[in-house]
Amino acid sequence: MQHQKPYLFLFFSTLLSSTIMAISSSNFILLWISLELNMMSFIPILSSSKSNLETEAAIKYFLAQATGSGFLLLGISSISIFNNLMSQFPFILILSMGLLIKMGAVPFHFWFPHVMSNISWLSCIILSTWQKIIPIMILSYYSSSIPYLFLPIAILSASVGALGGLKQSHLPSLMAYSSIAHLGWMISSIPFNSFTTIIYFIIYSISTAISMLIMNLMKTLNLKSMISSNLISMKMKLLLSMSILSLGGMPPLLGFIPKIIILKTLLQSSNQLCALILLLSSVLTLSYYLNMSISSLMSSSIPSPSNPPQSPSFFNTSILTPLAILTLGLFPLLLI
């Protein structure tokens, strides 16, 4: 029998409240405190199973976040001293570097796939989605000061995420590089249209959460075991396939819309090269999304004696069904 961990409710509560506190903060000190509370709330969630791999991942996460917090605090304290933009510019760079480390953006991404590959699927969902809210929000505050710093970071993140995912067969690592690639798209639109970034982030978060939740139900960690998995129904496999293709921006799924909007925004701001590289990287990411999608559909639906099929739970029907409607659009109510 699995041991209950009631203390996790406390850490999930502080994780949620720290993000809300950061969004509503009126000064940098409260913002920094919210970030630290957010980090310290997530570390116990990372290591909740007490396995050696999760403990190692929690230590790596802590070191990366502590480094980012150091740069962030240095940038915030220095910006408050100087009044003119020219004096603040180097410290805005330092502040931005701290936020990029916290998000796992290129070239500060090395910790991110290692942590993702050693933690549970629930922790992967939080790390890929919820933990990016505060850094993206702070970056949007300074996007007008250094707009063209973001474009090289966006190009590098999208390219590394696309190329790094091609050689991955371990699903959490593959989803980590997918997250890096999508982060490049979000960063590219921050200086020009923050609202587009919010829309992209929401659609990405929903699609990623659905994909990882179903992978968790499949009890699989690599592409080969995905093919042989028979723990979920064909409707769930179709939902997984459509969610993955939505992440890749395959039309007419919902993930296609924000990418088109970002490309239009970049072209209107005369950033044709950035738009072209992002488009090419999206083609590369779509190749491994198609591989995942085909692998999920090829898996057998006939239950084995040792692995009987799981009956749909209240969580599956009440949570995944509306998410499927929001994400897939043309394929509602797949779980009914």
Results as ranks from 00 to 15, higher is better:
Leu72Asn: 05
Ile190Asp: 05
Ile190Gln: 02
Ser140Leu: 00
Ala162Phe: 14
Met218Pro: 04
Thr67Ala: 08
Met292Val: 11
Ser229Tyr: 00
Leu279Ser: 15
Pro152Asp: 09
Phe331Gln: 07
Phe91Arg: 02
Ile227Tyr: 06
Thr327Gln: 07
Leu280Phe: 13
Ser299Gln: 08
Ile59Ala: 06
Phe62Glu: 01
Phe315Val: 04
Ile59Glu: 01
Ser144Asn: 10
Gly248Trp: 03
Pro147Cys: 06
Ser173Val: 05
Tyr7Lys: 01
Leu127Glu: 03
Phe331Val: 06
Lys219Ser: 11
Leu328His: 05
Leu156Ile: 10
Leu171Lys: 14
Leu239Cys: 10
Ser188Leu: 09
Ser128Lys: 12
Ile119Leu: 10
Val283Pro: 00
Thr208Leu: 12
Leu279Asp: 10
Ile180His: 00
Ser246Cys: 14
Leu245Ser: 00
Leu53Ala: 12
Ile210Phe: 03
Ser51Cys: 00
Ser128Asp: 05
Met242Asn: 05
Leu266Lys: 00
Gly248Gln: 08
Gly98Met: 03
His109Met: 01
Ile20Asn: 09
His114Ala: 03
Lys50Arg: 10
Trp185Gln: 04
His170Asp: 15
Ile325Ala: 10
Asn216Trp: 04
Ala176Lys: 13
Ser123Asp: 06
Ser313Trp: 06
Met175Asp: 07
Gly68Cys: 03
Leu297His: 05
Leu290Ile: 13
Ser128Glu: 06
Pro172Leu: 08
Tyr177Ala: 09
Ser96Cys: 09
His170Tyr: 06
Met298Tyr: 12
Ser18Leu: 08
Phe89Pro: 00
Ile81Pro: 12
Phe11Asp: 02
Pro44Ala: 10
Ile94Phe: 07
Thr317Phe: 04
Phe256Val: 02
Lys237Pro: 05
Leu174Glu: 08
Thr19Asn: 15
Tyr148Val: 09
Ser157Pro: 07
Ile261Met: 15
Pro152Gly: 13
Ile43Cys: 00
Thr14Pro: 02
Phe12Pro: 00
Ile214Asn: 04
Ile138Tyr: 03
Ser194Asn: 15
Leu328Val: 04
Ile126Pro: 08
Ser26Asn: 15
Ser24Leu: 12
Lys235Phe: 01
Ser318Met: 11
Ser281Trp: 06
Leu15Asn: 06
Gln2Cys: 06
Ser145Pro: 01
Ser87Met: 13
Pro309Met: 11
Phe110Cys: 03
Thr14Cys: 11
Thr19Val: 14
Ala64Cys: 10
Pro113His: 01
Leu163Ile: 15
Ala275Val: 08
Leu15Phe: 13
Glu56Lys: 14
Met298Trp: 11
Ser128Trp: 00
Lys219Ile: 08
